[in-house]
């Protein structure tokens, strides 16, 4: 469900991963992290959301 929402917001659902790992599975933890890191690296950074100049200026002021 959450992945579907991410998709609708224009984010790749692949950026979220759920993995069942037990306390003894150090190898698998390392492998999962390595694999997931590679996947995210392939996806690249999340594009910044658009911010209109007319509004962005005011936010500095309000902040």
């Amino acid at each position: 469900m959450l992945k579907k929402i991410l998709g609708q917001m224009g984010l790749n659902p692949g950026r979220l991963r759920l993995e069942w790992l037990s306390a003894s599975e150090a190898q698998r933890y390392a492998a999962t992290v390595a694999e997931f890191t590679d996947e995210i690296r392939a996806l690249g950074p999340i594009p910044a959301g658009v911010e209109d100049a007319a509004v962005a200026k005011e936010e500095v002021h309000a902040g």
Partner: peptide, 13 residues
């Protein structure tokens, strides 16, 4: 006002 707030344009359902 949602947390993600805005379309990121990376992915199309």
């Amino acid at each position: 006002k949602s947390m993600l707030g805005v379309q990121r344009g990376e992915f199309k359902p």
